[in-house]
Design a protein around this nucleic acid. Sequence first.
DNA 1: TAAAGTATTGGAAATGATTTTCATTATCAG
DNA 2: CTGATAATGAAAATCATTTCCAATACTTTA
Lengths: 150, 150
Amino acid sequence: MKEQPWWYGRLKDSGARLTEPREIVLEILRSAREHLTATDIYIQAHRMKPSIGLTTVYRTLELLIKLGIVQKFELGEGKARFELVDKPGGEGHHHLVCLKCRKIIDYSDITNDEKEFLSRVEDRLKRKYDFKILDHLMWFYGVCRECRGS
Amino acid sequence: MKEQPWWYGRLKDSGARLTEPREIVLEILRSAREHLTATDIYIQAHRMKPSIGLTTVYRTLELLIKLGIVQKFELGEGKARFELVDKPGGEGHHHLVCLKCRKIIDYSDITNDEKEFLSRVEDRLKRKYDFKILDHLMWFYGVCRECRGS
DNA sequence: TAAAGTATTGGAAATGATTTTCATTATCAG
DNA sequence: CTGATAATGAAAATCATTTCCAATACTTTA
């Protein structure tokens, strides 16, 4: 029997059904090289199964976000982008954005250094602001080699 | 003669005029305790000078963003929020977001620990991805005391 | 298995933030 | 002062996202 993706159980446990539109959206997200907008996903989904509606794409994304399977980003473009969350127990990843071409690189070479640092910061925030920290996100902005010229 | 705010020169150098609507928007941002939406700013501005239009608020924000005076954020609310950028040479600050009430705390207790860590990471990214890092942003997500219940 | 209840779906319409258009007004250089 | 340019505001247009609602699909219960 085939290995199920990590989010399979989470979906099932929630009581939600793994319907074809949902499978399609998940498959598109899984194989995406970049962060897709709802419309990007809709276009691809529609190609695979023309009956799928944009509303369903939005609803599916909403469900997956609520279940912690998908993460939503907004980068000031006036529309959101979506990405499959890292497998739990994985390292997480950060983002590197080119300010010129808007290219986004996901990187996940998280060193121990980094991990320790983050837990120290989270500790500090917890004590100082009485926030229970659940997650964090780091964005680095810069200019990629191509956009800097030769 | 009165001390000009740090962004004054930047605005002048760009060739833009410091008009009344622009002054009003800047003043609102300066005295804001939280991150305001364009409409929030419009409402306050309108109170101070009823002839100001929403369009002008948007246009002013766009200009200030281009000049690096204002930063735009989106937090998945379907609308953007705006914040005056830190005075150059300052320490920068990070954000702490409550996932329940969406409250945002800006914090700027940047420790040396943190500063060193960030420069190490930036170095590493520079070497590995050949990105010239110009800036970074850290977001921490959690639940504030009030939203966790007593 | 059939009936009934619930979850899911898709299209159309509604919403709401942001942008564009365009005519008017304010400011600056000569 | 005069012409050129920048800035403004109202209304209309856009565009992403949400809401409504009627039709389907699946699951459970009798």
